[in-house]
Simulated assay, not measured.
Amino acid sequence: MQVEHHDLHHEFPEYLDFIHALQASSEQFGHLYDQYQNLTREVERLEEEDLPVDDFTIENMKKHRVWLKDQMYRMLVAHKSGG
């Protein structure tokens, strides 16, 4: 099965420097980043290996991943604009 990768570097290539800066300077961003990366790896593993998992579970995982990405995006935009 072809799986689309969702790591932040693919999602926000224009924010690459800011991602690294916030990982180093913000504990909150670092925590969100780690959660996002771990969740992304798990979703991709389930999809790649075509493991049995109910739709509700995988959809909740993906929704949580979107929420994490949204939180980090807000932090990246604020950091970029000096906030």
Rank of each mutant, 00 (worst) to 15 (best):
M1Q: 11
V3I: 06
E4I: 06
H5K: 01
H5L: 06
H5E: 00
D7K: 00
L8Y: 01
H9T: 01
H9I: 02
E11F: 07
E11R: 03
F12H: 05
P13R: 00
E14R: 06
E14N: 05
L16A: 07
D17N: 12
F18R: 05
I19F: 06
I19G: 02
I19N: 00
I19T: 02
A21H: 11
A21F: 15
L22K: 00
L22I: 07
A24E: 15
S25A: 08
S26W: 09
E27N: 09
E27W: 08
Q28A: 15
F29P: 07
F29N: 00
G30Y: 03
D34S: 13
Q37G: 05
R41A: 09
R41M: 09
E42N: 11
E47H: 10
D50V: 08
L51I: 15
V53Q: 15
D54F: 11
I58S: 05
E59Y: 14
N60Q: 14
K63V: 06
H64Q: 14
R65W: 02
R65E: 03
V66I: 13
K69S: 15
D70R: 10
D70E: 14
Q71D: 04
Q71L: 04
M72L: 08
M72E: 06
Y73R: 02
R74H: 14
M75Q: 04
A78C: 08
H79K: 07
H79C: 02
K80I: 14
K80S: 14
S81F: 09
G82Q: 04
G83W: 07
